[in-house]
Design a binder for these strands. Structure first.
Length: 100
DNA sequence: AATGTGACCTCGA
DNA sequence: GTCGAGGCCACAT
């Protein structure tokens, strides 16, 4: 699959603006872009090329848990390295969600 | 044109 | 809390 370039560009723009140590959700990104849905944002993250500079790991689900996918372990490690906290059930505190 | 597939979301039970 | 159904948009067959 390949997402339309216009939508990808908007998604990239939003993801690139997530501050260090904060996270956001697929749905919020979708609502900030035009013509995108949460599913498409997920698809776009899966399709990212190898050399991208995008903080894709700062994108989590509406339940504030890391989505279940092949790179979930890497994502968890990357966030922890930035100081993102996870509670006992693997959720990120609500006040770390961007934007506020 | 119809159907199936997703790193998802919301709502109701 | 969890779980399932229905909805969502773009893309492949």
């Amino acid at each position: 699959m390949a997402i339309r370039a216009e939508i990808l560009e908007q998604i990239f723009t939003v993801v690139a603006q997530i501050p260090v140590g904060r996270v956001t959700t697929y749905g919020r990104i979708a609502s900030m872009t035009e013509g995108a849905t949460a599913r498409l944002v997920g698809t776009a993250m899966r399709q990212l090329p190898e050399g991208h500079l995008l903080p894709w790991y700062r994108v989590i689900g509406a339940t504030r848990r890391i989505a279940d996918h092949g790179g979930a372990a890497r994502q968890h490690a990357a966030l922890r390295a930035e100081g993102v906290i996870f509670d006992a059930s693997g959720r990120v505190p609500a006040h770390l969600i961007w934007p506020d």
